[in-house]
């Protein structure tokens, strides 16, 4: 089985947002693999391994694809160090691409790679758009299962039953191969991914995606990373969405610490008129 994992590098969200010339100032920013995409790599690994003895399913392959500037290669290597097998880096400036352009490139990559599933984060934590997975599935005419909090893989025929957190509960949706699945936070829970190979009794740490091991980091240096260009996929650098400006929200007026609960209730009733 082959799983394609599109990943995006994003500025570390713990940094304070700064504005320069009406846009986010990323000078000197530190970068990370988008957390949800990192979880997608983790999910792909859990689908294609025996988590109890750390062996990969024979004949399985995880291919990472990323569209971004030259120095995004570092974040791509992180995914290889986690255990992905090879990577494709489509070199492009961030301002040259939007969701539709990314989808166009991914469609071309998918036509060449023919993966069984595409697994990706539900959204990038910089733009928070939450679009690419659904758009890609729509363009391909594939089924989609978004916001996966759990996945159970069944065989003959291969399908994924995905638990999705929706308004008012958890919906279970079954998608056959090929399909696009986008993952949510809880997909890295201890038993969230069941692949029929890892014993059901096995519990992962539940602490998020695995950290690359030293061995993984060494191995990643030798794994194939193909650098390509937007033009190789017939995608024009003409985004349909233009960012005109960015502003920071005004800070909330300072609040007050009140001495005790009776004072709080009095203030909520008289001052805030909230009770």
């Amino acid at each position: 089985m082959k799983i394609l994992v599109p990943v995006k590098r994003v500025p570390d969200p713990t940094q304070k947002a700064k504005i320069k010339d009406g846009h986010i100032d990323l000078t000197g920013a530190s970068w990370i693999v988008n957390t949800f995409d990192e979880y997608a790599v983790e999910t792909a690994l859990r689908l294609l391994e025996n988590g109890a003895d750390n062996t990969r399913t024979a004949g399985s392959e995880i291919v990472v694809v990323s569209i971004g500037p030259d120095d995004a290669a570092k974040e791509i290597r992180t995914c290889l160090a986690m255990g992905a097998d090879r990577a494709i880096h489509v070199v492009a400036k961030d301002e040259e691409i939007d969701s539709l352009a990314v989808v166009k490139v991914l469609q071309a990559v998918i036509a060449a790679e023919k993966p069984d599933f595409v697994l990706m984060g539900k959204q990038a934590v910089d733009g928070d758009a939450n679009q690419v997975g659904q758009m890609l599935a729509g363009k391909l005419g594939w089924p989609q299962a978004t916001f996966a909090a759990s996945i159970e893989m069944s065989k003959d025929p291969v399908a994924l039953t995905v638990g999705r957190e929706v308004d008012g509960g958890v919906e279970y949706k079954k998608v056959p191969s090929p399909a696009v699945v986008t993952v949510d936070l809880r997909i890295v829970g201890p038993k969230a991914v069941q692949n029929g190979v890892t014993p059901a009794s096995h519990a992962y740490s539940g602490e998020g995606a695995r950290l690359p091991s030293l061995k993984g980091i060494m191995a990643a240096k030798k794994k194939p990373l193909a650098a390509t260009k937007l033009a190789d996929y017939g995608a024009a650098a003409a985004p349909s969405i233009k960012e005109l400006s960015v502003t920071l929200p005004p800070p909330r007026p300072p609040g007050q610490i009140v001495a005790d609960i009776p004072t709080l209730v009095k203030k909520l009733a008289d001052e805030a008129k909230a009770l």
């Binding site: 659904q134 729509g138 916001f147």
Partner: peptide, 23 residues
Amino acid sequence: ATAVGKDLMPRVAALLDAGMASD
């Protein structure tokens, strides 16, 4: 932008070749 809106509308955008502003 509910669970349904977020799941559905990007797929609609793809079918319409439409640019999308989320949330």
